[in-house]
Design a protein around this nucleic acid. Structure first.
Length: 850
RNA sequence: GCGAGCGUGCUGAAAUUGGUAAACAGACAGGACUUAAAAUCCUGCGGGUGGUAACACCCUUGUGGGUUCAAGUCCCACCGCUCGCACCA
């Protein structure tokens, strides 16, 4: 007997009691524990791990329900399933809370993890909690520091000066989202750009690979692949050197349109281009540069283009005696190409606007259909003009010719550039993983020795005063070089939290391993993640960084699949209706009532009219948040899970509806009432039993549902899967079956819905005399051989329009069918002599064309 | 501006490779039960025309065209919405 303790059976549906009861038993029996088993096929289901904010939200409930249904489905289908959970527990909210509430970030985080974990437990997820990890745990970040060191040793991480958002009042660095209208979110100070020396991961080294390998990801949404593709941003073109015959000046320019070189009339540089150093003493230039940087920061500065004339000139590489003026401009960006372009105003909108502004000549060199400049199309039929040896050539041809010429003249070469920039991982923050680097007094930058790891965060810190607590700590940063005894200071920056989440899925394979970040055996068994489920908001950064980590770790000699996630499911948001007052104050939908088509809320004694907005993603600011924990408390986890699954397909947004929840509860209650006293839980139907026609139909319907439901679950079409279950239950209720066939059909039903409503199914099975834990019962196999009727409904059409249907035996021939139709009472005014053509699709349709 | 996706009842949505549009739900309405309410059960629920009625016929998947025996599905144009990127040379 698997359920070895005797549990109280519930006659009435009481989710609160039964869910607690089974969760306790399942935990005691450790039924979700996963172990490597080479004799079984593995299946790794992972949902993106949560940030421990303290409370789960609807998005979590949806995400983890989708994952759980999947995990249980594959487990019951004989796979060895790994389904772990952990905490993405470093990050700014802990620091903010620490400042606001004077609590230690560690305590705050741990408290949040405890309360969120208990909320997750109540959802009844099939998670192997023995594998729980938390990124702020030194046992986790110790290995992360080792990874950083390995990256360092393999040249995958380096230090470089880079600009950050600096709050001069709080003396802190701000994330982009903490800068609101150019001001610090807390202090209100105008944010400055400050140059700091920071650590970078060399992700751009893999640009091409990360781009090309997207093609292998057949089970990723096209949308996500496209977003990554655009982010990596490949462009093909040429690099061209512009030199001056009068000075040493030489500027390397990148262009995707080298064939327009004869239309070049100026050079434009980013204000951060190396040449700008020559002007650093020039007051006007410094002013101009600051203005440009501000423009580029504030993305709403429009398309206004400003320039700074250097009065320097370079020679045109193909036109003798033609000199091109060199400008600095705000519209040239330092982090793309070389931060330098040649301007061809006739065929580039931006160059055109700039040239107009500064009276630079505009020379047309492409004969296109449209006469108006700028003409920026690249039509295959267009030909070049005013371009010497390129004249008459089409664009493609001209491009090839000019690149050849450039390479022959040794003034440049064909070139491929990527938008993807190296990943800056330094954060001037306390609550993150310390970077295991020391700066020795002799100027050397060294990684920390292995036996000194982990470099733990100090707990006696002062938060709330300005600056980085690690920087301000009296002695944490002061250390010694363990080899030489020389004085040294620690790196006080911590790692971007995306670093933490770029390898946690690897750690889940061997979360307890003390010596190594991951055990090769376990890793090679479990990886890659088979199904990875999470929000679309991580389409680029997290997923790209994780793909990069896999490659970078390979470079460090680790045996890891280079694509960590085989199939990706991006779930939509959970939305809810919104209400606003006339003066745009958001009102919680709970406080709104409807009368005669208008909406009201009460403020004090007054009734105030409110405007109904559209349904939007649940957010605190819009006051349309519903707390999943209270829903689980009131209606039970199974109701909540069923609702989360059945309304919309996973990738689409889900409309929250309390009526929907209530209806799910009623449905479960109805089935519970029906089955709790009547059912005997059985796994198979006795072979020797003689079934009536009706019973055969029920048997057939049930087995068909097994197959349809399983197919839908495999394809993540949970909403239609549930619809099929409801069709089955509607059918079974209506048929009023008795005895064995009743037991058989309903037992199958319970086994199918089990993956969605595990407590409900388990309780009913237990009530019905089963001592089995359904988690261990193999998924039912569909018997599709028995056919209770050999009839097919065939649609009769005239000119493609439905006129009626007729029931005939299966696989009827065309001639027989026509005969039957004409012989039937209602022959749908078909006149064969006027019929030109008869289209017949076996078992489906017959169409008379008249 | 560039790129992608989506437009189906009052609402969430279904509809294999083109083959019965609206499965399955929610809301609503009517009825049964009840002293009453709730719960539960039953019925109806895209629009129109004709008929006392059962019923019959016609229209209907954002708009307009096209391909096809047959279009929600394929093609073209337009309109609207959503998302991503955004001076990327």
């Amino acid at each position: 007997m698997e359920v070895s303790v005797v549990l109280r059976k519930m006659k009435k549906y009481n989710p609160e009691i039964i869910e607690k009861k089974w969760q306790k038993l399942w935990a005691e029996k450790k039924i979700y524990r996963s172990k490597v088993d080479q004799t079984k096929k593995k299946f790794y289901v992972l949902e993106m791990f949560p940030y421990p904010s303290g409370k789960i939200h609807m998005g979590h409930l949806r995400n983890y329900t989708i994952g759980d249904v999947t995990a249980r489905f594959y487990k019951l289908n004989g796979f060895n399933v790994l389904h772990p959970m952990g905490w993405d527990s470093f990050g700014m909210p802990a620091e903010n809370a620490a400042i606001e509430n004077r609590v230690n970030p560690k305590d705050w985080t741990e408290q949040n993890i405890r309360s969120m974990k208990s909320q997750l437990m109540k959802i009844g997820l099939s998670i192997d909690w023995e594998r729980e990890i938390s990124t702020c745990d030194p046992d986790y970040y110790k290995h992360q520091q080792k990874i950083f060191i390995e990256f360092f040793k393999n040249g995958l991480v380096y230090k470089k000066d880079s600009f950050v958002n600096w709050d001069p009042i709080d003396k802190t660095v701000l994330a982009n989202e903490q800068v609101i209208d150019g001001k610090g979110w807390r202090s209100g100070a105008i944010v400055e750009k400050k140059k700091l020396s920071q650590w970078f991961l060399n992700i751009s080294r893999f640009s091409e690979e990360l781009l090309n390998d997207l093609n292998q990801l057949n089970n990723w949404p096209e949308k996500v692949k496209l977003m990554q593709k655009n982010w990596i941003g490949l462009s093909e073109g040429a690099e061209i050197k512009f030199k001056s015959s009068e000075s040493k000046l030489s500027i390397d320019v990148f262009t995707t349109r080298p064939e327009t070189i004869f239309g070049a009339s100026f050079i434009a540089l980013s204000v951060e281009h190396p040449l700008s150093l020559k002007f650093s003493e020039n007051e006007n230039f410094v002013k101009f540069r600051n203005k440009c940087l501000k423009f580029q920061e504030a993305k709403d500065s429009g398309q206004e283009k400003i320039g700074f004339n250097t009065y320097l000139f370079v020679d045109h590489p193909f036109l003798k005696n033609k000199k091109l003026p060199v400008y600095f401009s705000n519209y040239v960006l330092i982090n793309y190409g070389n931060g330098a372009i040649f301007g061809c105003p006739a065929h580039d909108e931006r160059d055109y606007a700039f040239a107009k502004e500064y009276n630079i000549p505009i020379k047309c060199i492409i004969k296109g259909k449209e006469k108006e400049l700028p003409y920026c199309e690249t039509d295959e039929k267009d030909t070049l003009t005013n371009s010497e040896f390129l004249d008459q050539k089409n664009i493609k041809n001209a491009k090839e010719t000019i690149i050849e010429k450039i390479e022959k003249n040794k003034i440049g070469q064909k070139s491929i550039k990527f938008k993807l920039k190296d990943w800056g991982v330094s954060r001037q923050r306390y609550w993150g993983c310390p970077i295991p680097i020391i700066y020795r007094e002799d100027g050397k930058i060294l990684t920390v020795e292995d036996d000194e790891l982990p470099i733990k965060l100090p707990e006696d810190i002062e938060l709330g005063s300005s600056g980085n607590p690690l920087e301000n700590h009296p002695n944490w940063k002061i250390t010694k070089c363990s080899k030489t005894g020389m004085g040294a200071i620690r790196e006080t920056d911590t790692l971007d939290t995306f670093f933490d989440s770029s390898w946690y899925f690897l750690r889940f394979c061997s979360p307890k391993s003390a010596q190594k970040a991951f055990e090769t055996n376990e890793l090679s068994y479990w990886m890659p993640v088979d199904h990875y489920i999470g929000g679309i908001e991580h389409a680029i950064l997290h997923l790209l960084y994780s793909r990069f980590f896999a490659r970078a770790l390979k470079v460090c000699g680790k045996k890891i699949p280079k694509e960590p996630f085989k199939k990706l499911i991006t779930q939509g948001m959970v939305c809810h209706e919104t209400f606003r007052t006339k003066d745009n104050k958001w009102i919680d939908p709970k406080n709104v009532c409807k009368e005669n088509g208008t909406y009201w809320t009460k403020q004090g004694d007054k009734k105030i009219k409110v405007i109904r907005g559209r349904s939007e993603k649940m957010s605190k600011s819009k006051k349309n948040v519903v707390d999943p924990d209270s829903i689980v408390f009131t209606y039970g986890a199974d109701t909540a899970r069923l609702f989360m699954i059945s309304d919309s397909p996973p990738e689409r947004d889900l409309e929250w509806s309390i009526d929907g929840i209530k209806a799910m509860y009623k449905y479960l209650e109805k089935i519970y009432d029906l089955l709790s006293s009547k059912l005997n839980f059985i796994l198979t139907l006795k072979n020797d039993i003689e079934l009536s026609h009706e019973e055969k139909k029920a048997y057939e319907f049930t087995n068909k549902t097994i197959s349809l439901f399983s197919e839908d679950v495999k394809k993540y079409r949970f909403n239609t899967a549930v619809a099929k279950l409801r069709e089955l239950s509607n059918f079974l209720i209506r048929r009023k079956l008795e005895g064995d066939i009743f037991d058989y059909c309903w037992s199958i039903y319970l086994r199918l819905i089990y993956i969605i409503t595990p407590h409900f199914s388990q309780e009913l099975a237990y009530n019905a005399g089963s001592d089995q834990i359904i988690e261990n019962v193999k998924w039912p196999e569909a018997d599709l051989n028995i056919s209770s009727n050999s009839e097919e409904t065939i649609v009769i059409q005239i000119n493609g329009k439905k006129k009626g249907t007729i029931n005939v035996e299966e696989n009827v021939t065309k001639d027989k069918l026509i005969e039957t139709i004409l012989g039937s009472q209602n022959h749908y005014s078909i006149n064969l002599s006027k019929t030109k053509k008869i289209i017949f699709v076996p078992n489906k349709i017959i169409n008379f064309v008249v």
